[in-house]
Amino acid sequence: MPFFGLILGTISGLGKLSRKKIFRYPCIVYIDFIRGTPLLVQILLFYYGISGLYSNATGNSLQIDPILAGIIVCSINSGAYIAEIVRGGIQSIDKGQMEAARSLGMNERLAMREIILPQAFRRIIPPLGNEFIALLKDSSLLAVIGVHELLKSGQLYISRTFAAFPVYIAVALMYLLMTIVISRIVAYSERRLGVSDRN
């Protein structure tokens, strides 16, 4: 999920900065729609909405795999947030960098790929880490469509044992553990990549 989100976010972040309207407008619509609606609604819309449309249209019922649906919705969702992070990162790079690259005969694509994006990515590692943590926590919402993620598994366990408090605490601690691991990875890569361009 973080991987697809990152790809989608980079593409639509670049798209929003494009001078061409055919690239820019779809990206703006996508980003604004996703950021302006709750993830829970997006999950329900995608999971029940699409199968509903399908059965209305064809008369057959469609069974979407909830896990697959969950991965798709969460990727699309985080992609929109990552797009804004990527866009901010690109815009924070000094204009002189693009000019220097262009003055050496690099075309815009090459300059973006070799000069601007590598610098932008170093700079956006911390907000990207926050986004991944948010994504991880938000994945608990997938319980509503029956995905057996951490929260749902806990709930099933409670329904058998009636031990609500200890199980929820355990679930919370597991989320905490995972987010701490992500923060550590982020801090580590920040240190690793930061060494070369400290100014």
């Binding site: 002189g96 960098q97 220097a100 003055s103 005969g105 000069i115 590598p118 610098q119 070369s196």
Partner: peptide
């Protein structure tokens, strides 16, 4: 490619 440019603020690639 034919005209090299040197800027006031260097604009070296920091990475």
């Amino acid at each position: 490619e034919e005209a090299g440019m040197v800027f006031q603020h260097f604009n070296l690639f920091p990475h």
